[in-house]
Amino acid sequence: MSDHDAHKEGSVHIVSYGQLVAVWVSLLLLTVTTVAVTRVDLGAGKVWAALAIACVKSGLVIAFFMHMKYEARLFRIIFFVALVTLAVFIGLTFFDVLYR
């Protein structure tokens, strides 16, 4: 029935090739960084470094490749809820793992 007006929220945004390639290149560079970081002796900081880089990378993928940057606010909030939920699940598990 209402297929035609389904797109009224948030117009369709087209990401240019240049932008996509730029994101892709930065992902590659970040991968190189991940590998490079393993050669530096950071002790426990190693894990944090790897996680930080991974966060930036997934952020890029979500924002550009998954279009989240251009979506309506509601979708971004919903997406954020999912992320926070995951973080809470992992966080609470650490009450066990860290103190065992």
Binding site: T85, V88, F89, L92, F95, D96, V97, L98, Y99, R100
Partner: peptide, 22 residues
């Protein structure tokens, strides 16, 4: 309800801190 799952595991060998939190 999504953050209470640990109460199924009080006797599993989970840490005491986790037991209290859950």
């Amino acid at each position: 309800g999504s953050v209470v799952w640990g109460h199924h595991m009080f006797t599993s060998g989970m840490s005491d801190t986790a037991v209290m939190v859950f």
